[in-house]
C-alpha cells in the first residue's frame, strides 16, 4: 500500500462478551488530516477509536478479530502495546488530569519512557504547553495542582500531556462534550493548528463540530460504518439515505 493512510482497518469485528459492537468495519484514516466519527450514542464510534491504541484491552471480555494496521503494521500483532500508545496519544471525554501539578502531568509520559534530565523535561513541558496554547495561562502556576484549572484548561492540559509524548496520532474521544462553548471553540482552534503535525481522529456528537473541523467523516450506525468520505461530501452530498436522515436531524 503506497498511500497516505495512517490507519488501515479491514473487516474489524469486536465483541463485548456476546454483544457484537463493531461489524465488519473497513476504514482508512489519512495522515495529517482530521477524521471525525459521527453517529448516535452506542453506535460504536468510541469503541472503534479505542481500538486504535488498544484501550479496549483494559476491558474484560473484549474479543477482537480483523486487521487494524498503523503505517502497515498490525497493531494487534507486530507492535508492542506500550510503543503503540506512545505513537498514538489519546484525549478522553472528561478531562482527566492526574492529581499532580501541571508540570508533573506533562512530565509523566516522558518520565515513564525514561527521560530523566530536568532540562529535557523542562523543554518538553514548555513546548507541549505552547503547542496546546496553554503556556501563557499556566506558566506561573506550573507547580500547582492541575485540578485547580478550569475544565477547558484541564482538557488542553490533557492534550498537552498527549503531545508531550510526540505521538504521530492523537485520538480524541468527544473532547469537548464536557466543556462550555468558549472552551470548545478554543479546543477546536487548537485542533485546527495541531493537524499540521499530527493525524487526528475525533469522536464527536456534534455534527456542526465535525463539519467545522474535520477533513474526513465516517458515519456510524449500530456498529457499522454506513458511509465514510470527505466531510464536504458527507454533509452536502451523502450517498446513503440513513446518513442524510441523521445529518438533517431526522433521528439520533
Amino acid at each position: 500500500m503506497v498511500d497516505n493512510n495512517k490507519f488501515y482497518i479491514k473487516d474489524l469485528n469486536l465483541y463485548y462478551d456476546t454483544l457484537r459492537a463493531l461489524k465488519d468495519v473497513n476504514l482508512q484514516i489519512k495522515s495529517n488530516k482530521v477524521t471525525a466519527f459521527i453517529g448516535p450514542s452506542g453506535c460504536g464510534k468510541s469503541t472503534l477509536i479505542r481500538c486504535l491504541n488498544r484501550m479496549n484491552d483494559l476491558i474484560e471480555g473484549v474479543k477482537i478479530n480483523g486487521l487494524v494496521a498503523i503505517d502497515n503494521t498490525d497493531i494487534y500483532g507486530d507492535i508492542d502495546v506500550i510503543t503503540l500508545r506512545t505513537k498514538v496519544g489519546m484525549v478522553f471525554q472528561k478531562p482527566n488530569p492526574f492529581p499532580m501539578s501541571c508540570y508533573d502531568n506533562i512530565a509523566y509520559g516522558p518520565r515513564c519512557q525514561g527521560v530523566k534530565s530536568k532540562t529535557d523535561i523542562d523543554a518538553i513541558v514548555e513546548k507541549s504547553l505552547k503547542q496546546a496554547a496553554l503556556w501563557d495561562e499556566v506558566k506561573d502556576r506550573l507547580n500547582k495542582s492541575a485540578l485547580g484549572l478550569s475544565g477547558g484548561q484541564q482538557q488542553r492540559l490533557c492534550i498537552a500531556r498527549a503531545i508531550a509524548m510526540e505521538p504521530e496520532v492523537i485520538l480524541m474521544d468527544e473532547p469537548t462534550s464536557a466543556l462550555d462553548p468558549i472552551a470548545t471553540a478554543k479546543i477546536e482552534e487548537l485542533i485546527e493548528n495541531l493537524k499540521k503535525s499530527y493525524t487526528i481522529v475525533i469522536v464527536t456528537h456534534s455534527m456542526q463540530q465535525a463539519a467545522r473541523i474535520s477533513d474526513n467523516t465516517a458515519f456510524f450506525l449500530s456498529g457499522e460504518i454506513i458511509e465514510s468520505d470527505t466531510t464536504s461530501n458527507i454533509f452536502t452530498n451523502p450517498i446513503n439515505k440513513k446518513t442524510e436522515d441523521y445529518i438533517t436531524g431526522r433521528f439520533g
Binding site: N53, M55, L58, I82, T83, R85, T86, G89, M90, F92, K94, N96, P97, F98, P99, Y108, G109, C112, Q113, C158, R161, A162, M165
Partner: peptide, 27 residues
Amino acid sequence: VPDSYREASYGLGATKLQTISKIIIPS
C-alpha cells in the same frame, strides 16, 4: 481511584507497574 486515571496513564504508554506505583498508589 477513578478509572480515568488508569486510562490516562495507559494512554500515555505507561506500563502497568508505572501506572500502579506512580498514579494509583499515590491516589
